[in-house]
């Protein structure tokens, strides 16, 4: 469960490492291009997070190198640049996902999980949480073997919660993850509440305890206790 992080901004690196380690990942740090190149083969990484703007080299080159070296690993580009061409360029260089700074750590974790699922499990993976079972590739969700009919967005929301279990996730984070640019820009988070309400109701109707806790208006926590 090793994750390589190549990021020159120390403070941001610390944040990512702390959050990912809370999730049980182990992190290898590289603060510049050359360190990144040196540690590329050090582990069999689950996922590599690579900043494009490095002081001593082009992150994109590193992405290409990483892709050649470790074909099994997921690669997520984290960049301050948010242009379609750059996204396309990054994905063409071999990245699996592209995350624009500033991002939510919860979103980063959800994306790491999602990329890891795609690259390592070849689909067919089953995620469990208490009595809940989700088959992400099949878009199906079960509670005690009884199928729950969740919409696409509700399922994404559930997966987001499951990736960030026991963590407080903010409503802005949820909106950005589920809708991207179409999220918070609408000045209200009503639609987050609506989807959340529906997801909780459907799960509870199927006999699942309500695992979602509202945390002082700032966000939600999904945990067994």
């Amino acid at each position: 469960m090793q994750i390589l992080i190549v990021e020159d901004e120390a403070s941001l690196m610390e944040s990512m490492v702390s959050y990912l380690e809370m999730e049980g990942f182990r992190c290898e740090r590289a603060s510049d291009y050359h360190t990144g190149v040196n540690v590329l083969d050090k582990h069999n990484y689950l996922c590599m997070l690579i900043d494009l703007n490095l002081p001593d080299g082009d992150g994109l080159e590193l992405v290409k190198l990483a892709r050649d070296n470790q074909s099994e690993s997921g690669i997520i580009i984290i960049s301050a640049r948010n242009a379609i061409e750059q996204r396309v360029e990054g994905l063409e260089a071999g990245a699996d996902d592209y995350l624009v700074k500033p991002f939510h750590l919860s979103e980063l974790v959800a994306r790491v999980h999602s990329v890891a699922r795609r690259t390592h499990m070849n689909g067919g993976e089953v995620l469990g949480f208490g009595p809940i079972r989700v088959e992400p590739e099949e878009h199906t969700c079960y509670v005690d073997d009884q199928q729950v009919d969740l919409t696409r967005k509700e399922l994404d929301l559930l997966l987001y919660f499951m990736a960030n279990r026991n963590r407080v996730v903010t409503k802005e984070g949820i909106a950005d993850y589920l809708w991207g640019e179409y999220g918070g820009d609408y000045g209200s988070y009503d639609f987050v509440y609506t989807h959340l309400k529906n997801m909780r109701r459907k799960l509870m109707d199927a006999g699942c305890p309500d695992y979602v806790r509202n945390i002082y208006g700032i966000g939600y926590k999904f945990s067994l206790d």
């Binding site: 901004e9 944040s15 702390s18 959050y19 301050a80 500033p102 991002f103 939510h104």
Partner: peptide, 19 residues
């Protein structure tokens, strides 16, 4: 452009603090 990094730092630190 320069604002993005400090913003990312504040955002991530806040998120960590919330935990």
């Amino acid at each position: 452009h320069e604002l993005q990094t400090p913003l990312a730092v504040i955002k991530s630190k806040t998120e960590l603090l919330i935990q």
